[in-house]
Design a protein around this nucleic acid. Structure first.
Length: 679
DNA sequence: TATACGATTATTTTT
DNA sequence: TAATCGTATA
């Protein structure tokens, strides 16, 4: 039996709610995961079948946490395994693996990450004479992504309604539809499709809709404030039979507006789902009093929000420390010094500390300072392992083995390492595809002998390449994934080429090291998973960037460097909020208006990550593109009442004093010892 | 076709 | 500043 004794009355109400739509407004640190987990356990207690329970969140991390905590409560592993606890995107994959063929896609599909997407946009633009000097591929891709999130197809776009997406709607329409054709031809879907295509299938095929929506009798959605239109539609579809939809979120923590998430989903939930019950969780169990008060004061300035205020019966705790440093380097050094001292004074492990910033670029100065002091840190986000060139190249080979029609991957490797297949050859081959002679670039390569206008040496090079790939394709079923990858790298002689390619031998070495880590990671994956396979692995690494290369890394005691966005849902005893300057927080660039309310929510998220101690730092000057920029304090700082804060730098002087005192004590201690010995 | 160098341009946040 | 891109040259 699940015990509900240690839940507060609101939490208990939320857990006990059984049928119909439920909106849980869960403030920061109000125990929302706890409610979800208890609710799952309670539903199981009430006899709900585990297969009928679906809980969706945004990040893999949140899903893992849910899994672990559910597993702690429900001892029976076989039951836990039958639950569907998933991110939106992996749920999308799960649906598409079963249903995508209905839309005329091949049975196999790969998932394009943003860099693959951009490569594809660039290619279709080039092939269709859309001038890249007038139309920026990144902007177009962003607009396409927004359109997909809004569940709009190319024909739905019109100048009047969708001008904000992109200034030239005709060009957007054209590029979007070419991009779609391109994806289809490659046998690929992008991240946004993982949400959008299931909805399209549900709308076009009622029997598919029925299968999936009948399956999930109880649905829970975490971080509902971050859902976009397509996600709302997906949830609506899945809940359409049983209508037991429980969403949990906090409008004050909606920070993904730029990615199409729509706060009105949570603000209007009650209107969209008839008979909604609303429960507010306002008791905060995370932050000490001063920190929570500061957070409340900051967020209260926002106009569009549910009026609510978090409270706590925790002690006020220490006040919030403020510091102003001359530049980013000193900001970093000061932070590290302060942190080091605090660790020793309070005997804290490194993992108690986190440094939070607005942009990934800011991490650099802190990394340098931490490395200098040999303090272990872990950098969350930024360029991940799997985004590194050499890793992407290797994975592109694997992708081609799995899905030869993946033209983006094929183009990436067809002449890497160089094997005398130049642009002219590739363009000639690709022309035959556009003329309709072949279905894919790979197929054209296979028939290279029949193609006119190519020299014999080019033909031989292509034929030899195809021979190699086909050879490996035939070996896929017989070799383990890691062995296959290793053999492949040897066969194409990548390492010797890299030694030549990178003049700096250290760079070559570190890149080759990365590839050996990749092999390691694959081996670990093979050990960890029940039935490892090429397609499953490719799916995991695109969907879960935290599929670590070395698991021991994640276990070690280290401080965390993380963006404010990345930190949502996390908490740390000691938080340093750095770069709290206008331009970073709120973020804006010259000539652009900041989205002040969303940026304020981000600031709120930052403050509420801190459990015991919070420090807010800023610099007066910052180097940007090689020139110095004067920085003003964040406008959000003035909303934090003075009496909750103190200046750290006064502390610095005291510290100098106390060091002197310590020196004195040490000396007298020493002389005592000496005198003992001399006796 | 490969390479090397100068020019150019980008820095928000992420599944 | 640093990384990426495009062009010139061998």
């Amino acid at each position: 039996m699940v015990s509900l004794g240690h839940l507060n009355p609101e939490q208990r109400d939320a857990v006990l709610h059984q049928r119909g739509p439920l909106l849980i407004l869960a403030g920061a640190g109000s125990g929302k995961t706890r409610v979800i987990v208890h609710r799952i356990a309670y539903l199981l207690d009430q006899g709900e079948a585990p297969q009928g329970i679906l809980a969706v969140s945004f990040t893999n991390r949140a899903v893992r946490e849910m899994e672990e905590r559910v597993a702690d409560m429900i001892k029976d592993r076989s039951i836990v395994k039958k639950l569907t606890l998933s991110t939106f995107h992996s749920l999308g994959v799960k649906i598409l693996r079963k249903e995508l063929q209905r839309l005329g896609y091949p049975a196999r599909f790969t998932i394009y990450d943003p860099s693959d997407q951009l490569a594809l946009v660039r290619r279709v633009m080039r092939e269709n004479r859309i001038d890249e000097t007038f139309h920026n591929a990144k902007d177009l891709l962003a607009a396409i992504s927004q359109a997909k999130n809004l569940f709009l197809d190319p024909p739905d776009l019109n100048h009047n309604a969708h001008h904000e997406l992109y200034n030239n709607v005709m060009v957007l329409k054209k590029t979007y539809s070419l991009y779609e054709d391109g994806l289809r031809a490659c046998g690929a879907v992008d991240f946004d499709d993982l949400i959008r295509l299931p909805v399209k299938i549900f709308r076009a095929f009622p029997e598919a809709l029925h299968t999936w929506s009948d399956r999930y009798r109880q649905i829970m959605v975490d971080e509902y404030q971050d859902t976009n239109r397509a996600q709302l539609l997906m949830v609506e579809c899945l809940a359409s039979v049983h209508k037991n939809l429980c969403v949990v979120g906090d409008d004050d923590q909606s920070i993904y507006g730029w990615r199409g998430s729509d706060v009105s989903n949570i603000l209007n939930f009650g209107d969209q789902f008839q008979g909604t019950r609303v429960i507010m969780l306002t008791q905060n169990y995370r932050c000490s009093g001063h920190i929570l008060t500061a957070a409340n004061k900051v967020i209260a300035q926002n106009k569009t929000r549910y009026d609510k205020e978090l409270w706590t019966d925790a002690n006020p705790g220490p006040r919030i420390g403020l510091a102003v440093l001359p530049d980013e380097e000193q900001e970093a050094r000061y932070t590290v010094e302060h942190l080091y001292e605090l660790k020793h004074n309070e005997k804290r492990p490194w993992r108690d500390f986190a440094i939070l910033y607005r942009t990934n670029a800011q991490s650099r100065a802190f990394e340098d300072a931490l490395r200098q002091e040999r303090i272990p840190y872990k950098l969350v986000g930024g360029q991940t392992f799997f985004e590194r060139k050499e890793v992407k190249d290797t994975l592109a080979y694997l992708k081609v083995l799995y899905q030869p029609s993946d033209e983006i991957a094929l183009r990436r490797i067809i002449n890497y390492p160089p094997r005398s297949i130049g642009t002219t050859t590739i363009e000639r081959l690709s022309e035959t595809v556009r003329e309709g002679q072949y279905n894919s670039l790979y197929q054209a390569c296979e028939h290279v002998g029949d193609i006119e206008g190519l020299g014999t040496s080019a033909k031989n090079a292509v034929a030899e390449f195809i021979g190699q790939i086909e050879d490996f394709r035939s070996r896929v079923p017989h070799l383990s994934l890691s062995a296959l990858t290793l053999r492949l790298l040897e066969e194409i002689r990548l390492f010797p080429y890299m030694h030549r390619e990178y003049k700096n031998p250290n760079e070559a070495k570190s890149r080759i090291d990365n590839l050996s880590s990749l092999i390691n990671a694959i081996e670990q994956y093979e050990k960890r998973v029940d039935s490892p396979s090429l397609d499953d692995y490719l799916e995991r690494i695109t969907l879960d960037t935290r599929e670590e290369d070395d698991e021991r890394e994640t276990e070690k005691d280290a401080i965390t460097l993380i963006t404010l966005h990345g930190a949502k849902g996390l908490e740390y005893p000691v938080v340093y909020l750095v770069g709290v300057e206008d331009g970073f927080l709120p973020f804006y660039r010259q000539g652009e208006d900041p989205n002040v309310e969303e940026e304020r929510r981000l600031c709120y998220v930052g403050i509420t990550r801190a459990k015991q101690r919070l420090y807010i730092l800023r610099a007066l000057e910052r180097r940007r593109f090689g020139r110095n920029l004067e920085r003003e304090p964040s406008r959000f700082l003035k909303d934090i009442p003075k009496e909750l804060t103190f200046f750290l730098q006064a502390d610095q002087q005291r510290k100098a004093q106390s060091e002197e005192e310590r020196d004195q004590k040490f000396k007298s201690f020493f002389s005592e010892i000496n005198s003992l010995f001399s006796k």
